[in-house]
Amino acid sequence: YSMAMPPSGPDFRDKVVKTVREVLAEMGLQEVFEIKTECPSPHGSLIREQGRKVDVALLDRKGRPYLFLECKWQSVSGSAQDKLFRAVEEARRDRLFGVHSVVVVGGEGFASAIKRWALTEGLIHESFLKDWLREFFKR
């Protein structure tokens, strides 16, 4: 019997990075993209008048942003739920600037109504991430 600690936000981000690496390798794209964590966004923040760091960024060979993945983990009810709304707006803005951008959610702490809203807004639940990435990178 293991008393493992539940994942935290950084642990969840690392899990997302691992999944991205696996899919890129599986599809022969590991040399096409560089993966960066806590990557400064060239677009700044829509909501706050300051810079913004993206949890996971895939950069093309010229170092330009290609795909942003914001990671939101919620193990118990709390503030990450509120941050989802801001993350969705930031992702929309990234797409207006030509960078593919999505929010990946995980954990059991999101209320069912929030989970439904998130999925209808195009957010990706961690359980679908691998399949989503395979479809996204299909050539």
Rank of each mutant, 00 (worst) to 15 (best):
S75T: 07
C39I: 05
G9L: 03
L119S: 11
E108N: 04
R139K: 14
L59Y: 13
R21G: 10
A4P: 05
Y66T: 04
P65K: 00
H100A: 15
V56I: 11
R13M: 04
Q81S: 15
V17K: 02
A91N: 05
A57G: 10
R21T: 14
D14V: 10
P6Y: 05
K62D: 12
F33R: 06
G51Q: 09
F85A: 10
V88Q: 06
S127Y: 07
V32L: 12
V105P: 02
L58I: 08
A57M: 15
I47L: 15
C71E: 01
R92V: 12
H43C: 15
A4H: 09
E90S: 02
D14E: 15
E135V: 02
P7H: 00
T37H: 08
L133T: 03
S2W: 13
S41T: 10
L67F: 00
G9K: 05
R13K: 09
R93Q: 12
R13Y: 01
E38I: 09
D82R: 14
G122D: 09
A111S: 10
G107D: 00
K15F: 10
K18T: 12
G9P: 01
R61F: 11
S127V: 09
L24F: 12
E135P: 02
R92L: 15
G63N: 08
K62F: 05
L119T: 07
M27E: 11
K62N: 10
C39M: 10
G122W: 09
R52T: 06
G28W: 05
T19S: 06
I114S: 06
R21S: 14
R52E: 15
L59T: 12
E31Y: 13
K115P: 00
V105L: 14
Q74Y: 06
W132T: 01
S8L: 07
E70Y: 02
H43S: 14
D82Y: 11
P40K: 02
A4E: 15
V102T: 03
E34D: 14
Q74W: 05
K62Y: 09
V54N: 00
D94A: 15
F33C: 11
K83E: 08
R139H: 11
L133R: 01
I114A: 07
L24M: 11
G28V: 07
K36P: 01
R61A: 15
E38G: 14
F110C: 00
T19G: 03
P7T: 03
I47Q: 14
E34M: 10
A118L: 07
A57N: 05
I124Y: 00
K18H: 14
F33H: 12
D94V: 06
R93T: 13
E108M: 02
S45F: 02
T37P: 06
V104K: 00
H100F: 15
R48V: 14
F68R: 00
E31K: 10
A25R: 06
L84I: 07
V32A: 14
F68M: 04
R61C: 12
A87I: 03
F12A: 04
A118Y: 04
R64A: 13
